[in-house]
């Protein structure tokens, strides 16, 4: 069952089309990642879904609502750079947005305390937000997005601004939230998406270039790969490797050669035999599967 359905969504700025017709739907209870390089249109898409920006064309239909209904009460949104009233304390701000979302004073207060606990800044609840660090603001941002128990939680780059510990904690938090609400978040950190998302949307130049679940994508782009590192300059071996029958293409990444092959069994035998005969100084020989990064590179490179 889909919670929200997007059809033919377009957006132009001064005649320049930034979003060129998106069609997708988000399934209830799933966690979806919106992935794309910088400037792909991730933020613009999220802003249109949250109602902060009008679409030039297209429709956004929220399940169970009619045209013209205020869908903001179903949505929790965290912008990429959340801004607060610096003169308020954390708890004051949460209570404020809670009351604005229609909670009673008492419920807003309870909910605010609970969320401050959940995002781990309960100790700073009475501190002015102006004195918060970047990470604390990000956490407060997530708390404010959750205050009215939205059906759809949209997060714009929620972990990009955090240090590794903060990132870990927020990802764990999202893992927990996944069970309660539908999540859509944008990121360019592919590991994060791979870790917690069921669904992936690839956005490139304002178009949806690929989408599906992690497994589907893996299957679709399945291609076996062997990574090799040599003790000396890897360029010396490229030509020989390219000549092998099972090798399809080679890319180098630092000192590492990525060899995309047709049949992993045959290729492994072929490359190892070759290296034995020629006495190659191998440092690393690894058979690896497709990561999201590979899919990303492939999709975007198209």
């Amino acid at each position: 069952m889909s919670l929200i359905e997007i059809k033919g969504l377009k957006k132009s700025f001064q005649g320049r089309e930034v979003i060129k017709g998106l069609n997708f739907s988000l399934e209830k209870g799933k966690c979806t990642a919106l992935i794309g390089p910088n400037g792909a249109g991730k933020t613009t898409t999220l802003r249109m879904l949250s109602g902060l920006m009008n679409s030039t064309e297209g429709t956004i239909v929220f399940e169970g609502t009619k045209k013209g209904d205020d869908i903001r009460k179903f949505i929790g949104y965290l912008p990429q750079f959340p801004v607060f009233y610096d003169w308020m304390s954390g708890i004051e701000f949460l209570e404020y947005v809670g009351k604005l979302s229609g909670l009673s004073k008492k419920v807003a207060c309870e909910r605010a305390l609970h969320l401050l606990q959940v995002v781990g800044i309960i100790d700073a609840k009475k501190k002015r937000i102006g004195k918060y660090s970047g990470g604390m603001k990000q956490r407060l941002g997530i708390a404010q997005a959750l205050i009215h128990r939205p059906q759809l939680l949209m997060l714009d780059e929620p972990v990009s601004a955090l240090d590794p510990f903060g990132r870990r904690e927020i990802l764990e938090l999202l893992e927990k939230l996944k069970k309660e609400t539908t999540i859509l978040f944008s990121t360019h950190i592919l590991n994060d998406a791979e870790e917690i998302c069921n669904q992936i949307l690839f956005l490139h130049n304002g178009q949806l270039v690929e989408s599906g679940s992690m497994e589907e994508l893996r299957e679709r782009y399945q291609q076996s790969r062997i990574d090799i590192i040599f003790q000396n300059n890897e360029e010396n071996y490229k030509d020989v490797l390219k000549g092998l029958t099972e090798v399809e293409s080679i890319t180098s990444e630092g000192k590492q050669l990525r060899i995309y092959v047709n049949d992993i069994e045959l290729a492994r035998r072929e490359i190892l035999r070759e290296s034995m005969e020629r006495n190659w100084p191998l440092v690393k020989f690894e058979v690896s599967g497709m990561t999201l990064e590979d899919v990303f590179m492939k999709v975007v490179g198209k």
Partner: peptide
């Protein structure tokens, strides 16, 4: 300009 209006008006205000 600061963006706080967007934080508030994304709520049903």
């Amino acid at each position: 300009k600061s963006g706080v209006a967007a934080m508030i008006l994304v709520k049903p205000v």
